[in-house]
Amino acid sequence: MSVRVVLSTGTGLERTGGCKEFEIEARTMRELVRKMDQRFPGLGAWLEEETAVAINGEIHDTVHFQPLPENAEVFFLPKIEAG
C-alpha cells in the first residue's frame, strides 16, 4: 500500500538533505515513520515529537495508531500553538 509523503516547511528537511517528497509503502503511521527513520536515521523520533500530520487533509498528531488509506496523501506539518 503506497502513500505519498511530503515534508512541509519546518518539518525536518534538514534531516533529509532537502528531499521533501517520498513514496512509502505503509499501512499505518507507525509503519510510515519507522520506514522514514530507516531511510534517515533519527528522523522518526523527530517527526513523532515535533510535527503534526495531515492524512488526506485531516490533521492529527503524529501518532502510531493512525491508519493510512490506499494512495493517501500524508503531509507532515509544524504543530500548531494553542491560544
Binding site: S8, T9, A54, N56, E58, I59, E73, L77, P78
Partner: peptide, 8 residues
C-alpha cells in the same frame, strides 16, 4: 499553502 488539501 502549507501542503495538504482542505478536508472540511
Amino acid at each position: 499553502v502549507y501542503g495538504p488539501q482542505l478536508a472540511h
